[in-house]
């Protein structure tokens, strides 16, 4: 028995999509890029702007490692095409500290050992920053629920919750 994959396509001649101008403000700095429409915001940050603090863990919106803040709201940057963010203001993990002083969440993550390998950490911290801005989380139970889009395979969850509580000014 023989099998073939993938099914052949009829059309001939492959041409690449045209690159389009994109203006994004990243961590307060205005950036001009020319990107193909298929480039995700995540790849734009990592490959085109050299901001590798934002991580890729699945590229499918399943893990939260790529979480950044767009106009203050947390999103999975792997699910956003960069060209659609034209004019947006993006904050990544590299933009959270100010003048060398860590953001309260960054310090709390260190204090509570809220990570091990560190790969999910930028996404967790950005997601937590978005969560704080949403003002929805009060109890530990609520934090757990609202942080469940960010997987930590190292299993630092209880420490992540404790860190967020610290940053929220809770005991």
């Amino acid at each position: 028995m023989t099998r073939t994959s993938p099914q052949g396509r009829a059309e001939d001649g492959i041409s690449l999509p045209e690159k389009l101008p994109v203006a994004i403000t990243v961590n307060g700095v205005a950036r001009q890029l020319r990107l193909a429409p298929w480039t995700t915001l995540l790849d734009a940050l990592r490959d085109h702007l050299g901001l590798t603090g934002t991580k890729k863990g699945c590229d499918h919106g399943q893990c939260g490692a790529c979480t950044v803040l767009v106009d203050g709201r947390r999103i999975n940057s792997c699910l956003a095409l960069a060209v659609m963010q034209d004019g947006a203001s993006v904050t990544t993990i590299e933009g959270l500290a100010s003048n060398g002083v860590l953001h309260a969440l960054q310090q709390a993550f260190i204090d509570h050992d809220a990570f091990q390998c560190g790969y999910c950490t930028p996404g967790q911290i950005c997601s937590a920053a978005g969560l704080l801005a949403e003002g929805r989380a009060g109890s530990a139970e609520e934090i757990r629920e609202l942080m469940s889009g960010n997987i930590c395979r190292c299993g630092a969850y209880p420490n992540i919750v404790a860190a967020i509580q610290q940053a929220m000014g809770q005991p």
Binding site: G50, T52, G53, K56, T92, I93, L102, D113, T121
Partner: peptide, 20 residues
């Protein structure tokens, strides 16, 4: 606290796909 903690919470810790 982890001595590599600062690098990990600021996004400066580099993993295999992040070297150019």
């Amino acid at each position: 606290s982890r001595i590599d903690g600062h690098a990990k919470v600021t996004g400066t810790a580099k993993y295999a796909a992040e070297f150019n």
